[in-house]
Write a protein that binds this DNA or RNA. Structure first.
Lengths: 164, 164
DNA sequence: TCGCACATGAAAAACTTTTTCATCTAGGAG
DNA sequence: CTCCTAGATGAAAAAGTTTTTCATGTGCGA
């Protein structure tokens, strides 16, 4: 297995960690999903792809990949151990509350707001975190809310209609 | 114990739930803290105040109080089962990454940004969520980062230097 | 004051996350 | 190309968190 053949291989190496088949598999699963996945879902998806992997490794790998910014940790109203593929920006998310689709955006013009809050509160503001929730085009007229923890698309990359 | 004597009593009743000594105690602990507290910390603080309460009740009560907007759920980088007192706004938080102090603000002028992201992604955006992280005045020159899960001030309301 | 629907809490169950440690392997050295 | 080893893996166990259960308690309207 050459690193060239594995998407993300270079990026893993660049991060100073080894390219293992497990890491490649987890990265592929996340990148192949348009939604956000939890630990058990990643485990199931990797195993469905006929690759052996242990639960412990999934925990560790998700943490490693997130720290390298190869994937993003997504926070929902309840529970925040979910992950989505990383886009170009610094990781703000727009999440469909019905199907779970995650779209990343980075143009958060918060400069003025941050300045104003900083002035008023005497804080030095170092970081911010913004998430938007709504309905994607396909789920616009959906009746209810899909079960939160259900996977959206485990794998398979079909270009979605929405992208920044 | 009349409801008048208990801060939050009216608000609990208005929410359609009973005013119990446990709910009052949990609310008092959260309101008396300037930081964010986890479930175990709330449990410990209530018990330190010599009031009997069970862990199950703490879980249930925090959920009830948060659903009535009497307290807020705070999400941190890791873990998001922490709670802080509720201010007037719709609940955005500025959090000191050293001491844990939480300041709520509500003037988030995100209209233009939300419009722009909505246009580009074809999403209908229904809700947003913004959190700022930094250092409060007192922690400006702090060396490191205080242990994340440590309580900040369990109780006692001394007017802090920072308030919107 | 009474009564009961709602609330509590101890214990157990269910679930999640971390730790441990023996084994494996990616990938650089030779 | 083969060898070697630090880093990676994973099964099992431990630790921690959250939910469920159900008998008992109590807020509050009648």
């Amino acid at each position: 297995m050459t690193s060239e053949a594995v998407p993300g291989g270079e990026r893993l190496r660049a991060g100073g960690v080894r390219l293992t088949r497990q890491r490649a598999a987890v990265l592929a699963v996340i990148e192949g999903s348009q939604g956000h996945l939890g630990v058990r879902e990643v485990l199931a998806a990797v195993r469905k792809g006929r690759r052996r992997i242990g639960l412990t490794t999934v925990y560790r790998t998700l943490e490693v990949l997130a720290s390298l910014n190869l994937i993003r940790k997504v926070h929902l109203r309840d529970g925040c151990q979910r992950y989505a593929r990383a886009g170009a920006g610094h990781g703000h998310h727009l999440i469909c509350s019905r199907c779970g689709r995650v779209v990343e955006f980075s143009d958060c013009r918060l400069g003025a707001l941050i300045q104003s809050v900083a002035d008023r509160t005497q804080f030095t503001i170092e970081d911010h975190w913004l998430e938007l929730f709504g309905r994607c085009k396909g789920c616009r007229n959906g009746r209810g809310r899909m079960r939160r923890r259900s996977g959206f698309r485990e794998t398979g990359t079909r270009p979605g209609p929405a992208a920044p």
